[in-house]
Simulated scan of single mutants.
Amino acid sequence: MRKNRLVKMTVAIVALAALVTGGYLYKDAIQSRIARTVAVVSGQEIKPLLDSESRYIRQIVAKDNSTSRTIMWQSDSSEADAIIEYRLVGSDDIKTLSATDTAFTDDGSTTYIHEGTITDLTPDTKYEYRVGYSTDRRSDWYPLETAGAGEYEVLIYPDSQSGDYSGWEQIVKNSADRNPNVALYISMGDLVDNGEQAYQWRTWLDSIKPLSARIPLAPTLGNHEMYTLDWKMREPRAYLSYFR
């Protein structure tokens, strides 16, 4: 009983502190901090990831989508022990794959990109995966279904480049709601308006959340991914880093 009261008091203090001292925090960030605090105070063996440790979890198409899949995500700090865990749906046999921990700096902003490709999967089979660090921090489980020989649905998006991505975000949400069985989505270049502008990439990656963790993305390169802040051309560094 005393422990339950302690947990409730701690959650209330964390929530109040977040609201008072960190009004800039997104709702997801506040919720993730509360969840981590509850896990620590209650002595849970596995702690949920903070929002800052699990940004933009996404599946990227692999060379053969029927037997492999690339998983990527980002964190605000270096995490040398990044891993991906996966298993058949309904199985307790968890397999582990080491992921990269690569710093990427652009437009004065640094993020750490984690990536790994799961291989030797069985075609037309339902798996699930999660990401995390060391032995005690993990994300939620997300679905991963390998491609089969039958017909499948694909969502294809044209240019999403914009100065305001709220319209694009609504298009993604609505199309994902209308097509719950989609197997793949394609973004046909010019994802962002300026390829060097970090906030545009953050906004774009955040906007694909209705699809990104559960459906593989096939992104293609547009000329806008190669613009610098002063609208000159360069190598598409951000595009190549975020969709390696």
Rank of each mutant, 00 (worst) to 15 (best):
D136K: 05
T125S: 11
G116W: 01
L191H: 13
T117V: 09
R137Q: 08
P123E: 13
Y185F: 11
G222I: 00
I113H: 07
N181L: 05
Y227R: 14
Y152E: 00
D230N: 13
P123W: 06
V172I: 11
V154M: 08
H114A: 07
L221T: 13
R178L: 13
Q161W: 06
A147W: 08
L121S: 09
N223W: 02
A149H: 14
D177T: 12
I156R: 04
L221K: 05
R202S: 13
W201H: 09
T122S: 10
S139E: 05
R130P: 07
V131D: 03
S207A: 15
G167E: 10
Y185D: 00
D120P: 15
V172N: 03
Y185G: 00
L155I: 00
S109D: 11
D159N: 07
P219Q: 10
G150T: 12
A147D: 07
N181S: 14
P216I: 03
I156N: 02
D140Y: 09
S160T: 13
L221S: 08
Y133I: 09
A198T: 08
Y157H: 04
P143A: 05
T122E: 13
G108E: 10
L221E: 09
Y142W: 03
T228A: 03
E225P: 08
E145K: 14
Y112R: 10
P158E: 01
M188V: 01
D107G: 13
A198N: 05
A183I: 04
G163H: 05
M233H: 15
N223H: 04
N179C: 02
